[in-house]
């Protein structure tokens, strides 16, 4: 027994080492959203398209849609724009933009130059609505179902791989859930 006790340090060490080895492949930087399966928070915000008129969740599509957080200062947003443009062309799903902590003119310029995949661009210039969404930087992408409930969130840039492997299956799942 007392001999076995001496092996305790090495056992503890190897348990820790296994956790550390697993830890190397854990992503500890992307926060899981606490808003999954909760309704999209309420808002009263302007949009790029409709002047000073204040919009709310009632003005959003009543089918599943994507809510993309973007800004003209955001280089990765430039990378994912072609994917959203393609999705728009193929009419896969409506995409709503949340122009996050940006200036209106810069945002309009950016859309003009790079193409506008968004049906509507809600303006969150103060970043206050972003906080309600648990956003901590652009780009972030939410998938909202027909009842206005958040079903999926992706943090960071979306490339073709992620679109195919994560976003499309999530859209399919939301549609299937909505039908049943």
């Amino acid at each position: 027994m007392s001999k076995l006790k001496l092996f305790l340090p090495v056992i503890i060490f190897f348990v820790l080492a296994i956790f550390m080895w697993r830890g190397l492949y854990q992503d500890s930087r992307t926060l899981p959203s606490v808003l999954i399966d909760r309704p999209l928070p309420e808002f009263q915000l302007r949009s790029l398209e409709l002047g000073d008129q204040l919009l709310s969740t009632a003005d959003l599509p009543d089918e599943p849609f994507i809510l993309n957080i973007w800004g003209s200062y955001c280089l990765p947003c430039l990378q994912e724009n072609p994917i959203f443009m393609a999705a728009k062309d193929q009419q896969i799903i409506p995409i709503i933009g949340l122009n996050y902590k940006d200036r209106d003119e810069s945002a309009r310029n950016w859309l003009e130059i790079n193409g506008n995949p968004f049906e509507l661009n809600i303006i969150d210039d103060s970043g206050r609505y972003g906080i309600d969404l648990g956003v901590y930087g652009a780009p972030e992408t939410f998938l909202v179902d027909a009842n206005g409930v958040i079903r999926f969130k992706h943090i960071g840039v979306i490339n073709y791989q992620i679109w195919e492997d994560e976003i499309m299956p999530a859209i399919a799942a939301v549609r299937a859930g909505g039908d049943s």
Binding site: R29, T30, G71, Y73, C74, L75, P76, C77, K101, D102, Y136, G137, A138, P139, I155, G156, V157
Partner: peptide, 12 residues
Amino acid sequence: LVCVLLYLAFPV
């Protein structure tokens, strides 16, 4: 660096 790695951007 971490912000760059995360591909997250901020205006300020």
